[in-house]
Design a protein around this nucleic acid. Structure first.
Length: 709
DNA sequence: GTAAGTGTTC
């Protein structure tokens, strides 16, 4: 009788799927006097953690006198599932010290405990558990334990140790292989991850499952290998795995990151089920590939279809607003996000700051920043770099100081942003301090930081230090090479820049890219090296097969133009394979202005007024050409046009360091306390320059402007 | 009972 009611109860427990049924089952167990039966206690504890609470689960555990391994395991698993890793470890400690009634920690216990260790990155505790495993009979250790050990070591960044565990098994299963692949992928070694995958499939003839393919797809994302990615997609379809949501989502991400927008959209269309991750991934894919309208449309579709979005979705769509410079939509999403209470999420706030900064609304960005309950490196970096894009780099330095006061340590990206902001200011004193800081914080060998430091010193006029930084870099990549080449260019030392370029070609295996050529061409332009510049341009085209961008064309026009080769410049523009953009015509207009060629100026201006009608600078340049010719009628017409269109010219601001002070000036500035003396000195300089027959053109004074247009 | 998927500053 008793045994049959016990069997019935077992069956009822199997069917339990709600807290209500659980409560009834608990009553029934009590009535039948089976609460102390460790089997039911274990079941009750597990069900409580699933349907009610951990507290209830723990209560059942406490009230059970016979604590079997199963009961312990159930409670450990409950804590671990709730990510209460510390509690899990305390509990395990109790279990081995004094708590256990029957048996000892087993193959079920170890993976739970190891998971908690991995979550806490508690390597020492994990090693102790490993020691525990090593004392077990080898035949008793199963592959669940093996996979968990691999996960522990891989989460602690110890792939060598993970590999040793892996080698300890003669026939590792798919999960163990996958754990290794995931480990390498997550520790920044995607090549090795792909290697292990090939071995597993080609040599061991094991069948990858969806999880294996997810990890492989992540590795492909890191490698930007969309080819291998598509073959995963093919494999997935052949094996009918396309129902696997995680796998489809990770492919969606892969396509997005490798710029295969159409493939991503097609995959998304065909997915039988989609979750918030699928939607967010495609929105981010659109944003990151510049299809901002598509990103916004998809987000709006989500709202229309009442699909709930989360903070990740918000970040993706805010990026679209930032890229599109769409302040209106940005504000609307800010409101939506606030209504959902997501605006305090640190990454949403950061995306908002970035969006407002890129939409030229630094006040709004600061408002979001100040409301953040907790600031981190990334949000500070977003604010700091936003100030520099809004021409307020002096505020960036203030933000950097706030960071230091709040003990927020910059990472490599933040460091780059700080250095770039300082470059805008061109303050050598500050540059030296920052360099010192870079050394102290150990960023000296980061190539991105190195390149920014080189640029900083160049812009502060200290090429010696720029070169020192360059020479001390252990690894020199194309970015650092281009930075030092550009540095010499800024100094007007075009020949040195060319020498460095040749040295790079001869002594290293680094291949020049479009940025390198931009730096080189601009160096030639600043130094007036016409033929060298043309040669470099041809070399880029024919030897390196790099397709010139608009910037390359405009530099060549600038180079020809400022050296007086105006016919060649116009001829060059007319032969361009793509229609010339505003910068190209602008360079031509600038050249026409320096050399007083009103006819050429008119050609350029005609195109510019079409391409960039609201730019006051071009109107002013043309009017200056007319002024030199004393063609006051046309000057007047242009001035009227500017007034009529209400165009405003942006002020160019100069900053100079004298002693320990930084002074800033704009054109015709009379605000400085020593203004009279400054203008007196300028006049003297002008006289001296004329005496030295320097070909300054005080009538147009446009040399600086040509670079800006 | 073990392995996996989207996001913030370059």
């Amino acid at each position: 009788m008793k045994s049959s009611s016990r069997d019935q109860l077992v069956r009822l427990f199997e069917k339990c799927n709600s807290s209500k049924i659980l409560a009834q089952l608990q009553c029934l167990t009590l009535k039948l006097g089976l609460t102390h039966d460790s089997f039911f206690a274990t079941k009750l504890s597990a069900l409580h953690s699933k349907y009610t609470s951990l507290v209830q689960a723990h209560k059942v555990f406490d009230e059970t006198p016979t604590k079997t391994v199963h009961l312990w395991n159930a409670l450990l698993r409950s804590y671990c599932k709730e990510n209460q890793w510390k509690q899990t470890l305390y509990l395990f400690h109790d279990m081995v010290s004094y708590g256990i009634t029957k048996g000892k920690p087993d193959n079920y216990t170890i993976p739970i405990v190891l998971k908690a260790c991995a979550g806490l990155q508690a390597l020492e505790f994990g090693k102790m558990v490993h020691g525990f495993v090593e004392k077990m009979e080898k035949t008793d250790v199963d592959m669940f334990v093996g996979a968990s050990l691999i996960e522990l070591y891989s989460k602690c960044g110890k792939m060598d140790e993970a590999f040793q565990v892996f080698l300890g098994f003669s026939q590792p299963d798919v999960v163990m292989w996958t754990s290794m692949i995931t480990g390498y992928e997550q520790n920044g070694n995607p090549e090795k991850a792909v290697d292990f995958f090939s071995q597993m499939v080609m040599i061991e003839h094991l069948n990858p499952d969806p999880v294996t393919l997810v990890s492989l797809a992540s590795a492909c994302t890191q490698l930007s290998d969309s080819k291998l990615g598509s073959s995963i997609h093919g494999f997935m379809i052949r094996r009918n795995l396309d129902y696997d949501l995680s796998l489809a989502n990770s492919l969606l991400n892969l396509y997005g990151k490798t710029g295969s927008v159409n493939a991503a959209a097609k995959l998304f269309e065909g997915m039988p089920t989609k979750d918030v991750i699928s939607w967010s991934s495609l929105i981010a894919c659109y944003s990151q590939n510049g299809l901002t309208a598509e990103a916004l449309n998809l987000f709006n579709e989500m709202i229309d279809r009442k699909i709930k979005f989360n903070s990740v979705t918000a970040v993706g769509v805010l990026q679209a607003c930032a890229v599109a410079c769409n302040l209106e939509e940005g504000k609307r999403i800010h409101e939506l996000v606030t209504r959902k209470g997501l605006e305090l999420d640190i990454s949403v706030s950061t995306a908002l700051i970035d969006m407002y900064m890129k939409c030229f609304s630094p006040e709004e960005a600061l408002y979001v920043f100040e409301k953040m309950p907790k600031k981190d490196v990334v949000s500070c970096a977003a604010l700091l770099s936003g100030y520099s894009t809004n021409g307020m780099s002096f505020k960036s330095m203030g933000t950097f100081n706030t960071m230091r006061l709040n003990n927020i340590k910059p990472d490599a990206v933040a460091m780059v942003k700080i250095l770039v902001s300082c470059s805008d200011l061109g303050i050598l004193q500050q540059a030296l301090c920052l360099h010192d800081y870079v050394i102290k914080t150990g960023f000296t060998n980061n190539i991105f930081v190195g390149a920014s430091l080189i640029e900083l010193y160049s812009k502060c006029g200290n090429i010696v230090n720029a070169m020192k930084v360059f020479e001390e870099l252990k690894v020199k990549d194309i970015v650092t090479w281009s930075a030092i080449i550009a540095g010499y260019g800024i100094q007007g030392q075009g020949r040195e820049a060319l020498k460095l370029f040749n040295k790079m070609i001869e002594t290293s295996e680094v291949m020049p890219n479009e940025v390198t050529f931009l730096s080189l061409l601009s160096a030639c332009s600043h130094a007036g090296l016409i033929e060298e510049g043309i040669n470099i341009f041809n070399m880029m085209l024919h030897k390196y097969r790099i397709k010139p961008m608009m910037e390359h064309y405009s530099i060549i026009v600038d180079l020809l133009g400022r050296t007086g080769e105006l016919d060649r410049a116009l001829n060059f523009v007319e032969k361009m394979p793509i229609p010339a953009g505003p910068h190209v015509w602008g360079a031509l207009l600038g050249a026409a202005c320096i050399h007083h060629k009103s006819e050429l100026g008119e050609i350029a201006a005609k195109n510019l007024f079409k391409l960039d009608p609201n730019n006051a600078g071009y109107h002013i340049l043309l009017s200056k050409i007319y002024a030199v010719e004393k063609n006051w009628d046309n000057v007047g017409k242009l001035r009227d046009m500017v007034k009529e269109k209400r165009l405003k010219k942006m002020f160019g601001e100069s900053v100079i360091e004298a002693g320990n002070e930084v002074h800033s000036f704009v054109a015709n500035d009379r605000l400085h306390s020593e203004c009279d003396q400054i203008y007196r000195l300028l006049r003297n300089l002008n006289v001296n320059m004329r005496d030295e027959s320097y070909s300054s053109n005080s009538k147009s004074c446009l040399q600086g402007t040509v670079e800006i247009v």
